[in-house]
């Protein structure tokens, strides 16, 4: 039985085949996965917010896209992945509650997705698939044996990207 590694909110984990990395219940948060298909090494990051420079105080770089993504890239490379071969997949970034006067914080899902893509591009990582937006929660997992990124929802079934 391959082991299942849980990734909490504002956290990331890296590993290798045959592990699966999983993160439960993403709303506006984003699950960013990285994978090197040859070495079968990858990581999963669960970010909450786009930008650490707008935050007042935090001891946790994995909470933000701009600080969390480079950190995870370093760690998968340290584990033996080739940075040039890394591919990224994204899921999450929903808006869970509909308000007529939605403030910026309620639309943070969209900003999260945009910033993740920006940071990945800036680091030269190719984004091969994404499932972002909507109004529903997602549980995401990456199977490091295959690189398949599975997205589970309550009402909208399950799919792999």
């Amino acid at each position: 039985m391959a082991d299942l590694v849980k990734v909490g909110m504002a956290d990331y984990k890296v590993g290798r085949s045959p592990s699966t990395l999983i993160s439960y219940g993403l709303g506006s948060c984003i699950g960013v996965s990285l994978y090197d298909p040859i070495r079968k090494i990858g990581g999963l990051l669960h970010i909450m917010l786009p930008d650490s420079t707008q935050a007042r105080a935090s001891d946790n770089p994995a909470k933000f896209a701009d600080t969390g993504i480079p950190l995870m890239i370093n760690d998968v490379v340290a584990l033996g992945a080739s940075k040039a071969r890394l591919v990224a997949k994204l899921a999450g970034g929903a808006q869970m509650f509909a308000f007529s006067n939605a403030t910026d914080i309620m639309k943070v899902g969209t900003r999260n997705a945009e910033t993740c893509k920006q940071i990945l591009r800036r680091n030269g990582i190719k984004i091969v698939a994404e499932d972002t937006g909507g109004t529903y929660g997602r549980t995401v997992s990456i199977d490091l044996a295959t690189g398949s990124y599975k997205i589970k929802t309550i009402d909208r079934g399950e799919k792999s990207i």
Partner: peptide
């Protein structure tokens, strides 16, 4: 929906300021 997803909205506001 999932509790984690729903709680995101409350935690975001806090997450911007602290842990």
């Amino acid at each position: 929906d999932m509790a984690g997803a729903i709680l995101n909205i409350v935690l975001l506001q806090l997450g911007q300021m602290g842990d």
